[in-house]
Nucleic acid binder design. Structure first.
Length: 488
RNA sequence: GGCCCCAUCGUCUAACGGUUAGGACGCAGGAUUUUCAUUCCUGCAAUCCGGGUUCGAUUCCCGGUGGGGCUGCCA
């Protein structure tokens, strides 16, 4: 199956767009077909420089690059495929030729109405509580009048002629059977006065010529569907299958907008979300597998996705589950992968991390505590620098460690740990030593471990005292304990 | 206003007419634990309303209500 994602380059790729692209990608892949990226740059006024690049890069980041169309080649944006060009601005002659064909067949007509007249007309229609629709003023022009205006070079658009007595039917792959009375469909502009096509014409021409089997797009296009169906009919082309996915919503259930949070894929990229988490999250917003599985790799999505299980109702874009998925995917990384990802970041702050043979082991200690890679340097600082500790941190009401007990506790720790032979300096050996201390000094485990861990890490939260102490080595541990004792 | 779409816990959702309406996130409590996190357990929490069809409606039909989308020479 050939599917496509056709964004217009008017801004950064939107998360809703990414979800639509993902669904299209999954369908293409599960049928061993192709996923195309076409750039719909027919609105020159709204085009944003760099937007096409951002779209391509965002898809690349997400791990769902196109097989055909506009794509990145050696890091540069390019086009590839045998159905091109893939930017609509490079296909203008095509649209103009088909517009002419439609006019010749009587399915479209030139319209010379000015914007002012159209505005006036709509105002009147609204005042009469009628649906604003083109009144066909120019359809009733005589051939001579039309020719005269054309010869005079009068600016005009091309409108499609919609019959008023048709029932247009279609079965949407998500929504099921749909019906529209053609009388309520406007004579849509197909070609603007500058000769560029509108979405409607371009969609029909391109998706036919590019041999697209399934048009997957947002629900906002549902009301334009009859226009597209009619165009396919006029052009004598088989219509593709259609599937209109429900919208992503703000918390107040309006169409997702950037007023209420981040909607650009790039923002999530920059915040440090894993593409795996983002894809997993987006897939589950509107689709469910019919099982209780929650974690899906891209491969699993390809295997299990189906339009039948896509929701009809819009879904509120609520990030709380994304954060949970982020944690899940962080923890699914192998220790080596995880270490490799954070090592450069940590090395920026602590250059010795770059060549640290123990780095992977240290990284493993924070993996189940981290949410974003960028937190790593902060979480690992005490492995490379002596921490600053305070009496306030060393004492703990919860662990029943008072300020007054601190000198005795630290003294005990120093004396006992110092007695551990170098070859027994590991988690187990340290644990045994601390347990022995409990009995001798009549202290609870927490009363020893809290000050130990605090002195070693300088932090309220961290991996466990045994792990950290073993990792740091005897010398560093004793040095830090003595340092802590000195500030009392 | 017109046309179209939609409606289950706070959120994402499951339940081919028969279930104590299930799961996940979040929240609350608990277990494990030296802290935090992880993991595990428990709890709170929903079928928009009204008719109809049926022995029986979350489910099918109709109406209402509510929400949304479109209504551009934007996409």
């Amino acid at each position: 199956m050939r599917t496509r994602f056709p964004p217009s380059p008017t801004g950064l790729l939107h998360v809703g767009g990414l979800r639509t692209a993902l669904y299209s990608y999954l369908l293409a892949k599960q049928t061993k077909g192709s996923f195309l990226l076409r750039i719909e740059d027919t609105d020159r006024a709204r085009e944003v420089p760099g937007a096409a690049e951002n779209i391509v890069e965002s898809l690349q980041w997400a791990g769902i690059p196109p097989d055909e169309g506009v794509m990145l080649q050696d890091g540069v944006i390019a086009e590839s495929g045998s159905h091109g060009p893939y930017k609509q601005s490079e296909r203008l002659e095509l649209y103009q030729a088909y517009a002419k064909q439609l006019m010749d067949a009587g399915h479209a007509y030139p319209c010379f109405c000015t914007t002012e007249r159209l505005e006036e007309m709509r105002k009147n229609q609204e005042a009469l509580h009628r649906a604003p629709m083109y009144d066909r003023h120019c359809l009733h022009l005589s051939p001579q009048e039309v020719q005269t205006k054309l010869d005079a070079g009068e600016p005009h658009v091309v409108r499609m002629k919609v019959p008023h007595d048709r029932l247009i039917e279609c079965t949407d792959d998500i929504r099921g059977p749909l019906k529209f009375q053609s009388a309520t469909v406007d004579d849509q502009v197909l070609l603007k006065s500058d000769g560029w096509p509108t979405y409607h014409l371009a969609h029909v021409v391109d998706d036919h010529l590019m041999q697209i089997d399934l048009v997957l797009r947002g629900e906002e296009w549902l009301s334009s569907l009859p226009k597209h169906l009619l165009l396919f009919e006029y052009l004598n082309w088989p219509a593709p299958r259609y599937a209109h996915v429900p919208l992503l919503l703000n918390a107040d259930k309006t169409k997702l907008s950037k007023r209420q949070g981040s909607v650009a894929v790039q923002e999530y990229m920059e915040k440090g979300y894993l593409p795996e988490a983002m894809l997993n999250f987006l897939a589950l917003l509107g689709w469910n597998p019919g099982t209780t599985q929650e974690l899906f790799s891209l491969q699993e999505l390809i295997e299990q996705f189906s339009l039948e299980r896509v929701q009809k109702a819009g879904a509120i874009f609520d990030l709380t589950k994304l954060d949970w998925l982020q944690g899940q995917w962080m923890r699914k990384l192998t220790a080596d992968e995880f270490a490799a990802r954070i090592r450069p970041l940590v090395a920026e702050h602590f250059p010795e991390a770059a060549a640290d043979k123990e780095f992977t082991k240290k990284a493993a200690l924070i993996q189940q505590r981290i949410t974003f890679f960028k937190e790593a340097p902060d979480m690992m600082g005490y492995f490379y620098r002596d921490p600053t500790v305070s009496v306030k941190l060393l004492a703990s009401a919860k662990q029943k460690v008072t300020k007054e007990q601190l000198p005795m506790i630290l003294e005990t720790l120093i004396r006992s740990l110092d007695a551990i032979p170098e070859k027994s300096w590991n988690e187990e050996g340290i644990k045994e030593s601390v347990q022995a201390m409990m009995g001798e000094a009549n202290l609870k485990l927490g009363q020893l471990l809290w000050p130990l861990r605090a002195a070693l890490t300088g932090r309220e939260y961290s991996p466990g005292a045994f792990e950290v102490a073993a990792m740091l080595g005897k010398e560093a541990v004793l040095k830090r304990l003595k340092g802590a004792k000195n500030i009392l």
